[in-house]
Write a protein that binds this DNA or RNA. Sequence first.
DNA 1: TTGTACGCGTTATCAT
DNA 2: ATGATAACGCGTACAA
Lengths: 346, 346
Amino acid sequence: MKKKKSFTIYDLARKLNYSPSTISRALKNHHSISEKTIEIVKKAAEEEGYRPNILAASLRNNQSKTIGVLVTRINRPFSSSLISGIENAASKEGYNILISQSNDLYKNEVASVKALFDSRVCGIIATLGMETENVKHFDQFAKIGVPVVFVDRVPADFESYTVVIDNYTAAFNATNHLIEQGCTRIAHFAGAQHLNVYRGRKKGYVDALIKNGLAVDDSLIITMKSLSAEEGEAATEQLMQTANPPDGIFCSNDTTAVSAILTLKKLGVKIPEEVAVIGFNDDPIASIVEPALSTVSHPAQEMGELCTRRILQHVLKKEGTPKIEERSVLDTHLIIRASSNRKNNP
Amino acid sequence: MKKKKSFTIYDLARKLNYSPSTISRALKNHHSISEKTIEIVKKAAEEEGYRPNILAASLRNNQSKTIGVLVTRINRPFSSSLISGIENAASKEGYNILISQSNDLYKNEVASVKALFDSRVCGIIATLGMETENVKHFDQFAKIGVPVVFVDRVPADFESYTVVIDNYTAAFNATNHLIEQGCTRIAHFAGAQHLNVYRGRKKGYVDALIKNGLAVDDSLIITMKSLSAEEGEAATEQLMQTANPPDGIFCSNDTTAVSAILTLKKLGVKIPEEVAVIGFNDDPIASIVEPALSTVSHPAQEMGELCTRRILQHVLKKEGTPKIEERSVLDTHLIIRASSNRKNNP
DNA sequence: TTGTACGCGTTATCAT
DNA sequence: ATGATAACGCGTACAA
């Protein structure tokens, strides 16, 4: 269905007996146009319902005001908060955002990145999928000077902006907290180890154990494919059936942590007395589950805003400041709730 | 920072000694181009890393393959699921989605709609904000034949596609269920009444009471501005302090319902024996809170997919099928959990 | 202060 | 089967 031709600066020019260029300039308050003309043009534009065609402007300028965003799943607390932050910061500066999700499939990720490139985004913000092990598909951006910001799940070896949290320290602190609560046999629900976030969390966990003189028992480390509720339940059941079950679990996300809590309750295990549990992300469910889940807060919204700022800084930058690499590490916060707090439940 | 000029069909044409039009056609498998030429062109395009410039194509075709999406807050279970559905259906057909959020502010909504229009989206999917009482800002789309799909929170008087659930029936059934459980004094947490969804839910609640011969007590109907957790808590406390507190609460969303449950527990009120609670949406927290929250499931993801389908149907439609109005009402499902189930807690 | 002319990358139309 | 040309709407160098 073809759309009607829209009202352009040419139509406006004809109507006002000006040249199109004068209209164009007046509309953007060019200094060489008289106040009066600007006023006339703007008034007429308003009356006629003129709206600029951004496609044409972007093509002409070889530069769009659209930021591409790629996440694994839009429909997840972390992602949606991240996107929300990105959108708020972007729209405030007159930038649009183009969104796509990979559903954690490498194939989709590559296709989405291509699509975003074809749309000539002025920058791209991306979180890597579970299956992603190389990031060649982002090379095309670097090649033409379009900034790439990787956030949260980031590659090891790509020259780009990076916005992350310190997964290692957060995990170390979380595990350390469990030890302070008296846990001596702590299990860990780990995620795919080729992803920085899960690698960091596992390493923090292991180092906290070592630092405190506790044994690292590989049978207590369950590595999961997608950290789903089902996997969390299965792992919890499996662990509790062993001769020597854990007295604490540090989970790489809240989904599996909440799942662990529900499963432990089903098994009649007392939380946190017999098994203390701590998660990661501070999803809404964390504060609702009973006992409330201790977790690590993830400043998703702020991360999104920062990502946008990185893109804008880069785009608005003048020549001569080509540094396209900068790593931002945001603070996390350990939130201690009932699921790991033995002090209040002596 | 200016970007490098990109590799175009002209470069490809020069390199292969073909005309740009041949390249253009070969790239889209035009039937008039020989197999051999197509192969040659595609191979070279691949080698040179040629990527089409969608901006140029859209400008030339006066038709983009981008769907605009406007929600109130990206960062909400319903919205993010909706968007996820929209994105999945769109990307499958090679369409992109441009997202913005109004944060429930009318001013933002108008600005976002303008921005989406300026980007020449081929269709727009929107959920109205809390403050929105008129939808003039959508007229510009109708004017040039761009389809508008309103979803969930929709206007009463705008010719467009509409994707909704039957709020009235869902609310009626939810309230009826509370009555079946023995509730006789049921409160209602209502939302802004100029929005169809909250109006429908309230009406369903009222009619269920009437149908069952129960009195409609205005003091039991609390109308909230934003249906936030804080409002839910305040309303619950207020209700329970009265001489004649309710024995059931039908809430217009899960946020206030969960808030009610937590507040009731704090007050030592037994759920569902003394007060049964039911929410709306089936957010993740609904199944986690204790007792688990009965609620109405909202097929957000499917609604999103349907919205996209409406746009695509319209866009791909040939001339002569101009019907731009069609109302789709999706089924909801009453999910009975512990917060309203007195049968299992005699 | 305003106007003219061209090009951004693509595709549709009309030729050859 | 392929090529030449114009046009989509806008912005800008250059001219007046």
